[in-house]
């Protein structure tokens, strides 16, 4: 690990000032310290934000405001989350291990970096780690890589589960800016596609700090998180689907779907939700939804299986959700 200056933030304003001066915020540290040991990340300064008073879940309008320092474990265990946002609890419990979730925080988990093998191997090219060096995954091993929203610069995926559920639930991210203000953006717009700057995972600007995630009023309906992975526990998603489905008699009243493991961000396509709303559930309908999801999919050799896997997983999730909801 490269040497760094360690600061402990006494208050939010001080923390934001240090971040604006170039310090990296550290909360749980489970991802950042791992990357620092490998010298993939080498910040000159860390600001420890663990003592900031943003570690509570509070009621906010009809919804909940989850402080950025609420651990994944505490979030999944919160009685209000378990009762009103079971999708979020299920997605969190599908990720990592208890030890990691006991440290990992809501804000930090949103900033989790990709698990692309080439990003992790400093002897390999990677435009995300070393812009301009190329993409080792294209033409290399790319079993875990993206099939949607890719380009020739980067085919990495966002690896998390929590954010996929937050995208389906329509949650928003609250961000403190160095000028002293706050901006609030939908989780669906927080992560980005690689574009010309794959080194940027999300839309955070220099000096900005996540302070909370805000959940809207409970969505009700049937909420499912289906994660397909290589092991039964403690593995990243190959494909995951977060679904909120409400029925009106025999018909689907509304469906909101988000997808993990397929892209550089949690994937949400409003056309899919629109295609399902008001329709009678059927495998034909579910296949049309999968057609919309996958019409622009591009495969890279060892991840070709993700296209049929996503289709089958979507069908299974929609079958289960509409049967339960009916």
């Amino acid at each position: 690990m490269r040497p760094f200056d360690y600061h402990r933030a006494g208050g939010l304003a001080g923390a934001v000032r240090l971040v604006a001066d170039g310090a990296r915020p550290i909360a749980g540290g489970t991802n950042l310290l791992d990357l620092m040991k490998l010298e993939i990340e080498a910040p000159a300064a860390l600001v420890d934000i663990n003592r900031l008073p943003i570690d509570r879940i509070e009621e906010s309008g009809d919804g909940l405001r989850i402080g950025a320092l609420v651990t994944n474990s505490d979030c999944a265990a919160d009685p209000r989350i378990r009762r009103d946002y079971p999708l979020l609890a299920r997605a969190i419990l599908a990720g990592a291990t208890f030890q990691l979730r006991n440290k990992a925080t809501t804000g930090g988990n949103l900033c989790q970096r990709t698990r692309c093998y080439y990003f992790y191997n400093v002897d390999q090219p990677c435009n995300k780690r070393a812009p301009g060096s190329g993409c080792g995954a294209i033409g290399g091993f790319n079993r875990i890589h993206a099939v949607l929203g890719t380009n020739q610069l980067c085919i990495a995926t966002y690896p998390g589960d929590m954010a996929v559920a937050l995208a389906a639930l329509g949650a928003r991210v609250e961000i403190a800016s160095p000028e002293g203000g706050t901006r609030i953006i939908p989780v669906r717009d927080f992560h980005r596609l690689p574009g010309e700057t794959p080194e940027r995972d999300n839309v955070l600007e220099p000096g900005e700090l996540i302070t909370a995630v805000v959940l809207p009023a409970p969505a009700g309906g049937t909420q499912l998180y289906r994660k397909v992975r290589d092991r039964a526990s403690y593995a990243f998603a190959l494909v995951s689907i977060a679904a909120v489905v409400r029925m009106d008699g025999e018909r689907i009243a509304s469906a909101t779907l988000a997808f993990g493991g397929l892209a550089h961000k949690p994937w949400h396509d409003p056309r899919i939700d629109a295609a399902l709303a008001g329709q009678l559930p059927s495998d034909d309908l579910f296949d049309r939804a999968a057609d919309l999801l996958l019409e622009d999919a591009r495969v890279w050799g060892s991840n070709d299986f993700k296209v049929p896997l996503a289709r089958r997983t979507l069908r299974a999730v929609l079958r289960e959700a509409t049967e339960i909801a009916a």
């Binding site: 360690y6 550290i26 489970t30 420890d48 474990s73 208890f98 030890q99 990691l100 006991n102 440290k103």
Partner: peptide
């Protein structure tokens, strides 16, 4: 609370 002591300073 159980944690991985290798991933914290």
């Amino acid at each position: 609370i159980r944690i991985n002591s290798c991933l914290t300073l």
